[in-house]
Simulated scan of single mutants.
Amino acid sequence: MSIENVTARISELQARLAQFAPARVSGSGSGFATELAGARVATTGAASGGTVSGADVVAEARKYLGLPYVWGGTDPTKGMDCSGLVQVVYKSLGYDLPRVSYQQAASGRPVADLAQAQPGDLLAWDNSSRNNGVDHIAIYIGDGKMIEAPRTGLDIRVVDVPSTPDVIRRIIDQPAAGTAGTAPVSARAATGTPYADLIDAAAARTGVPGSLIAAVARQESGFDPRAVSSAGAQGLMQLMPGTARGLGVTDPFDPAQAIDGGARLLRSLLDRFGRTELALAAYNAGPGAVSRYGGIPPYRETQNYVRTVMAMVS
């Protein structure tokens, strides 16, 4: 029996097992499984004012790149399947999603099409006619790419979205733009942004939202590629010479190199600290300061920097 046939058979068994859930919830006229799948999950993120962003979801998911696919797996140290990855990522951010893909694909709220999808949204497909509902789910990271746990024999990876998803769902509530520390993050730089093509290309390579890269460039240098700070930081992204060398940037005054290096630095800080605000604080004050204080350092400059950049993100 081929791997594809085994996978299809497993999906069929999953769907049949769901039928053994209690038929009804007391006082309700709908099936328990449907109620569970369709209900909007309660989240600590929402309870704390909606501070989780799509970039946070993507940064959390990236921590598991290279981990083996394990069918039925939910262990972030050993391996996970597609829905296990989704559940673990969102659970770490305070969102309690159902376990299997077809239930996850009924959580949150619908997104009309891929053009309207945002980083952190769930993309799902119904690939098999042998079972009802979707059987594969992934996390969108922007610019036509996603993170998935694909199948046995492959590791968790970043790939192009292979086809139009059958279902797109948004789990997190994006707060109003302009709220410090909570602004939604766009995958692309806004129309008219200087060096937008270079920024969008760097965003596609790194998974860092283009609007975040653009906001950092605007705050750091005002988009001046020849800018030099009193401390010696250089170029559009104001990279210190040592930092630039560590990133392989040979000419920080070259816009393409500067943007690529700055985006990769942001990527590493997002992966390390898991939150956009903390990554920005580390970009400004250094990762050591963020680690030392366990959050945004009590420096007025850094606090203003984070607040200003987050207010520009849209």
Rank of each mutant, 00 (worst) to 15 (best):
44 T>K: 13
87 Q>C: 00
209 P>L: 12
93 L>N: 04
284 N>G: 03
170 R>C: 01
137 I>S: 03
155 D>L: 05
268 S>D: 07
187 A>H: 13
96 D>N: 09
76 P>M: 08
119 P>N: 05
185 V>F: 06
258 A>F: 08
188 R>W: 10
246 G>F: 09
89 V>I: 15
154 L>M: 14
9 R>T: 12
269 L>G: 00
62 R>K: 15
28 S>G: 00
179 T>I: 15
248 G>F: 08
156 I>E: 05
183 A>D: 05
199 I>V: 12
281 A>R: 11
227 A>Q: 06
117 A>F: 11
83 S>L: 06
205 R>G: 00
204 A>T: 10
97 L>I: 10
258 A>G: 11
288 G>K: 11
168 I>S: 02
309 V>H: 11
93 L>E: 03
56 D>K: 09
160 D>M: 10
289 A>M: 04
305 Y>D: 00
239 L>I: 14
11 S>K: 15
264 R>E: 02
56 D>E: 02
274 G>H: 09
226 R>D: 06
314 S>P: 00
310 M>V: 05
16 R>L: 14
11 S>W: 15
300 R>A: 12
53 S>K: 15
22 P>W: 15
90 Y>K: 03
15 A>K: 12
206 T>D: 00
35 E>L: 13
169 R>P: 01
147 I>R: 11
125 W>S: 02
237 M>K: 07
309 V>P: 02
311 A>E: 10
104 Q>R: 10
295 G>R: 13
237 M>R: 12
221 S>I: 02
254 D>C: 03
224 D>Q: 07
98 P>Q: 09
189 A>V: 06
192 G>N: 02
236 L>F: 09
199 I>L: 04
104 Q>S: 03
31 G>N: 12
92 S>P: 00
197 D>W: 05
258 A>M: 05
46 A>I: 09
32 F>D: 00
148 E>R: 12
264 R>M: 02
267 R>S: 06
314 S>T: 15
202 A>S: 08
239 L>Y: 14
15 A>H: 14
242 G>E: 11
84 G>K: 08
25 V>L: 15
22 P>L: 13
202 A>E: 00
112 A>T: 14
78 K>G: 01
70 V>T: 05
2 S>W: 11
41 V>W: 08
20 F>I: 11
14 Q>L: 11
221 S>G: 02
184 P>N: 14
75 D>K: 08
189 A>T: 04
93 L>K: 10
8 A>R: 15
172 I>R: 10
247 L>F: 08
57 V>N: 02
1 M>N: 04
292 R>L: 06
210 G>I: 14
83 S>A: 06
190 A>M: 05
235 G>Q: 05
246 G>Y: 13
281 A>M: 07
187 A>C: 03
241 P>W: 09
265 L>K: 09
178 G>C: 02
59 A>F: 10
93 L>T: 03
275 R>P: 00
39 A>Y: 14
42 A>E: 04
256 A>Y: 08
117 A>T: 06
128 S>E: 04
76 P>W: 12
30 S>C: 00
187 A>W: 14
100 V>I: 15
116 Q>P: 00
53 S>W: 05
220 E>L: 01
98 P>K: 13
138 A>F: 05
28 S>Y: 12
207 G>H: 06
193 T>K: 11
149 A>V: 03
171 I>F: 10
259 I>T: 10
79 G>S: 10
